[in-house]
Amino acid sequence: MFKKIAIGFAAALLLLVGVIATRPDTYTVTRTTTVPGTPDIAFGLVNDFHQWNQWSPWEALDPNMKKTFTGAEAGVGAIYGWTGNDDVGEGRMTIEEVAANESVRIKLEFIKPFADTSITTFNFKPATDGTTVTWTMAGDHNFMSKAMCLVMDMDQMIGKDFEKGLASLKTAAQAETTKRAEAEAARKVAEAKAAEAKAAEEAAAAAPAPAVAAPTP
């Protein structure tokens, strides 16, 4: 009896391994949304890791997460490392390629709880009501990640985080758009006041001098 159970278990295990092995070797997760403002606003929020605290879906998972910023201040060569609780683990991101106001390519390296490397890209395109932002992650599956995908695939696991992050990016872009609009309005008011003051000065300078009454004999 035990031998039959062992054989049955081995057969089931081999079948499971076979099924896992047939799973796709790569994965891609993509989400798209439209955010307010011109492409340079959303691009700036992504291209500078110091701005990620405004919208990243993982920032709030560990308030005590330790972050490091090395390399370039922003753009190509900027590196963002993190170490936190079980929800965020440990890893780093490196900006590898940038097209100003159009795209950002990032190498994403997970260190803990498991080692994995993927490529993340952000694309920005002008839209009638703002900027269309597309966030994509692509990588390779190892045996363990293939096994995990039998229960929940990468799109399900990461897609919700992307949606949450893009919603927060929309809020951050709206705040920056409003800030810029207010600054522009204030600039125009200041320019109008300066023009009025200058016109008043020029009018006063052009006005004829008041006549001086002749002294009475």
Rank of each mutant, 00 (worst) to 15 (best):
M1R: 13
M1V: 07
F2N: 15
K4Q: 12
K4I: 07
K4Y: 10
I5G: 06
A6T: 05
A6H: 00
A10M: 14
A10G: 11
L14G: 15
L15R: 09
V17M: 12
I20C: 07
I20G: 06
T22A: 11
T26P: 01
Y27L: 04
Y27I: 07
T28F: 06
V29Y: 09
T30L: 06
T32Y: 07
T34E: 08
T34D: 03
V35T: 06
D40Y: 00
V46I: 15
V46H: 09
V46F: 07
F49L: 05
H50E: 10
Q51G: 00
W52Q: 01
W52N: 00
N53Y: 15
Q54P: 05
Q54R: 15
S56C: 03
W58S: 09
A60W: 00
P63D: 05
M65P: 06
M65T: 11
K66E: 14
K66H: 13
F69H: 08
E73S: 13
A74N: 13
A74Q: 13
V76R: 04
V76A: 04
G77S: 03
G77W: 12
G77V: 05
Y80R: 12
W82H: 02
D86F: 07
E90M: 14
G91C: 07
M93I: 01
I95A: 06
E97G: 05
A100C: 01
A100R: 14
R105S: 07
K107D: 02
E109P: 00
F110L: 14
F110I: 07
F110N: 14
I111P: 03
K112S: 15
F114Q: 09
D116Q: 12
S118M: 11
I119Y: 09
I119S: 05
F124N: 07
F124M: 12
K125C: 01
A127S: 09
T128A: 13
G130I: 13
T131K: 03
T134N: 08
W135K: 06
W135D: 02
T136E: 07
M137A: 14
A138H: 08
A138E: 11
G139A: 08
D140R: 09
D140S: 14
C149N: 10
V151A: 15
M152C: 02
M157P: 10
K160S: 15
K160M: 13
D161A: 04
D161M: 00
F162G: 13
E163A: 13
K164F: 03
A167E: 14
A167T: 14
S168C: 01
S168A: 15
L169D: 05
L169E: 04
K170S: 12
T171A: 07
Q174I: 04
A175G: 03
T177W: 00
T177M: 01
T178N: 10
E182T: 12
E182C: 04
A183E: 14
E184M: 09
A185N: 11
A186L: 06
K188G: 04
V189Y: 00
A192C: 01
K193L: 10
A195E: 15
A197H: 04
A199M: 08
A203Y: 05
A204H: 06
A204Y: 08
A205S: 06
A206N: 15
P210S: 12
A211S: 10
V212E: 06
A213W: 10
P215N: 06
T216D: 15
